[in-house]
């Protein structure tokens, strides 16, 4: 299926958000995940299944004034 990940269209077969994050080796504690414009709490990542056309934003806090 095709999803939009941080503004880019990617082809993937990954079933859920937790797997999507783990496979990319991201720093989990600081990660903020937005699924179709809704924030998904970390505890719900495993249960949030991906579907064709979903929009995912992976965000994190960085330095800034």
């Amino acid at each position: 299926m095709k999803i939009r990940l941080n503004g880019e269209t990617v082809e993937t077969s990954i079933p859920d958000i937790l797997s999507l994050v783990k496979v990319r080796d991201l720093d989990l504690p600081s990660l903020v995940v937005e699924h179709n414009h809704t924030i998904i709490q970390q505890t719900a990542w495993a249960d949030t299944l991906l579907q064709e056309g979903d929009t995912i934003e992976l965000l994190s806090f960085v330095g800034g004034g």
Binding site: L26, D27, S30, L59, S60, F61, V62
Partner: peptide
């Protein structure tokens, strides 16, 4: 103290968590 929010680059190595 101010912090900013940015998209993660999924291809880049994991970033240090600034909040820590």
């Amino acid at each position: 103290i101010t912090v900013a929010l940015r998209r993660v680059d999924p291809k880049a190595p994991p970033q240090d968590n600034i909040l820590s």
